[in-house]
C-alpha cells in the first residue's frame, strides 16, 4: 500500500506546473485539482500507472459558493427585486464555460485520469468514505487500485489524499462503514494507525 496526503494553506502556491504534463488543461484546474495532480505524480514518482488500473475518487462537500460570491463581487448594479431579465443581462454574462467545468463534481477525477492515462474501472463520489472504499473493494479488475479524495475549503485551504493498494487492503479500513467524508480516510489525525506514515 502506498499512500500520500497533502494539505495546502489558503495562499500557498501549489506547484502544479512542476508536475502537470498537459499544461494546456491547467486552465480547468481548481485548487483541488491542482493538489490532486501533484499528489498523484508524487505517489507514482515517475512510474507510469497501468492504464487499466481502477481509479475511484471522492470530492469533498466543498464551497462552490465562491463562484456565486465572485459573481456578486463583479456585479455593479443590483436591482431591488431579482428579475429574470436582470439575471440574463448582469449575471449570466459573468458565468464563463470555464467556471461551469470547475463546478462539475467529476472534473478533478477526469483531469487526473487524463493526466495519467487512466482508462479503467472508475467512480466519482461526493463526500463518501464508505462508498470510496467499497468501490475499491468490489472492482472487478485484478491488480492494484487507486483511490483518492480531495476537499477544498471556502478559505482556499485544500486537502488531498491518494492510496494505491489491492482491493483486500481497503476492506479492513475502519471507515468502511463510516458516514464521513472520504478525505478522513487520508487525514493523519483520523486514520493514524491505518496508513504508514
Amino acid at each position: 500500500m502506498r499512500v500520500i496526503y497533502k494539505k495546502y494553506l489558503p495562499k500557498e502556491e501549489i506547484p502544479v506546473y512542476d508536475y502537470a504534463r498537459n499544461r494546456k488543461l491547467v486552465k480547468y484546474y481548481t485548487r483541488e485539482t491542482m493538489a490532486a495532480v501533484v499528489s498523484v505524480a508524487c505517489l507514482f514518482e515517475g512510474r507510469a500507472p497501468d492504464p487499466c488500473m481502477p481509479f475511484f475518487y471522492s470530492s469533498g462537500e466543498t464551497e462552490m459558493i465562491d463562484l456565486y460570491r465572485g459573481i456578486g463581487d463583479r456585479i455593479t448594479s443590483v436591482e431591488k427585486d431579482f428579475r429574470s431579465t436582470w439575471f440574463v443581462e448582469n449575471v449570466a454574462v459573468l458565468i464563463s464555460p470555464l467556471e461551469r467545468f470547475k463546478t462539475m463534481r467529476n472534473t478533478t477525477a477526469c483531469l487526473v485520469a487524463i493526466e495519467n492515462g487512466l482508462k479503467g474501472d472508475n467512480g466519482v463520489l461526493l463526500a463518501s468514505a464508505s462508498g470510496l472504499l467499497y468501490s475499491a473493494m468490489f472492482t472487478e479488475t485484478e491488480g492494484t487500485v487507486l483511490i483518492g479524495a480531495g476537499k477544498l475549503y471556502a478559505d482556499g485551504t485544500v486537502e488531498c489524499g491518494f492510496a494505491e493498494g489491492l482491493p483486500a487492503e481497503f476492506a479492513t479500513h475502519p471507515l468502511l462503514d463510516s458516514p464521513g467524508d472520504a478525505i478522513e480516510i487520508f487525514q493523519p489525525s483520523k486514520s493514524p494507525a491505518v496508513w504508514p506514515s
Binding site: S59, M104, R105, N106, A109, N122, G123, V124, L125, L126, A127, S128, S130, G131, Y134, D177, P179
Partner: peptide
C-alpha cells in the same frame, strides 16, 4: 447501512 453519493455527471 451507509449513504454514498455519486457525481460523475
Amino acid at each position: 447501512g451507509g449513504c454514498n453519493i455519486f457525481t460523475a455527471a
